[in-house]
Computed example of a mutant assay.
Amino acid sequence: MKLYYAETLSPRKACAMAGYLGLPIEYVFVDLRKGEQTRPDYLAINPNGKVPCLVDGDKSIWESDAVICRLAQRAESGLWPQNAQQQIEIMRWFSWNNQHLYRHAGSLYFEYLIKPWVGLGAPEPAKVAEAQGFFRKHAAVLNQHLKGRKWLLGHDMSVADFSVGVTLPYAKSAAMPLDEFPEVQRWHDQLNAIEAWRNPFPVREERAAANA
């Protein structure tokens, strides 16, 4: 298997899942600043020009939630449960996250981390305030759901936890008011106890040289 990634939000969940499961994977870094995601050879495997993308034999799987489900399936892991009702619950949380929490937490991630990275200037206060307002609204829903539950589906961790939690490692640096939601904080602390969650990206030669 080959996992094409960049060190950004959506690939983070795929890399964390692959690392957690210990699957034999060849990681291929896609340099977004050089536009490598728009090269014809990459578009041939993901016509959207996005990361991550998993090439598994003759199958090319794009969209990060599909990628993490495939990885869990390949590892025969309970993170992708066999129970149909639990699978529906996972789909519900994937959809909810993409439309709500990830959407607005991702806006804060863009304002505080991506804009400086690509030279687009400082965060815009109006956009930050709007995104924080929506973050609070949706984090409150998640906070209520997690009361009495260890993980999103109950006692057992699943791919839904890896998906819904992916923005939260950046809460402090992207001004997400996570500390206002103790159940969400507690839940993310559990994820943060996992080494592959804290350090999901493989060490590249360029990064190793820069840190030497």
Rank of each mutant, 00 (worst) to 15 (best):
D179F: 06
R12D: 03
S95M: 03
I90M: 05
C53P: 02
R12G: 01
Q99A: 11
L142W: 03
A6N: 09
N143F: 02
P177H: 01
K137M: 02
A16W: 10
W96K: 02
P81Y: 00
V164K: 00
L120M: 11
L120Q: 14
L3W: 15
V141D: 06
A72Y: 12
F181G: 03
W151L: 02
E89W: 15
C15Y: 03
A129D: 03
I88N: 14
G154A: 01
A174K: 07
S64R: 06
A16P: 14
G148K: 00
R12H: 02
E183W: 09
L113V: 14
R39E: 03
Q85M: 13
W80V: 13
F134C: 03
F135R: 01
D56F: 07
H188S: 00
A122G: 12
E205M: 10
R207E: 11
G19C: 04
N97H: 15
A129M: 02
P24M: 02
R207N: 13
R92K: 10
A196V: 06
V159W: 04
L101I: 14
N46D: 04
A44D: 06
G49D: 05
L120K: 10
R103W: 09
K59T: 09
K147L: 09
A171F: 05
K34D: 08
W151C: 06
G22E: 06
R103F: 07
A196F: 04
T38H: 09
R207C: 08
Y4T: 10
W80S: 13
K59L: 13
P123M: 13
A84S: 08
D58N: 12
F134L: 07
L101Q: 15
N192W: 14
E183L: 14
D58V: 05
S95Q: 00
P125E: 07
V128Y: 05
A126Y: 04
A174S: 11
T38I: 07
K50N: 02
N143K: 12
P202I: 14
E7D: 12
A210T: 13
I88K: 14
R74K: 14
R12Y: 05
H145I: 10
R136Q: 03
K34Q: 10
R207Y: 10
S95D: 07
W96P: 11
A175H: 01
S77T: 07
N143Y: 06
T167C: 08
Q85D: 14
N46G: 08
V159E: 01
P123W: 07
P40W: 01
K2Y: 10
G35T: 08
G119L: 08
A174P: 11
A84V: 15
K172D: 13
A196G: 01
I114Q: 00
V118T: 15
S60V: 09
F110T: 12
A75N: 03
I25H: 05
K2S: 09
R198C: 09
R149M: 01
L32F: 15
V28Q: 10
V184P: 04
L108F: 06
V203M: 09
C53S: 05
Q85C: 02
S173C: 08
R74S: 02
Y20Q: 04
S107W: 15
L79Q: 15
I90G: 04
I194C: 07
P200G: 03
P200S: 00
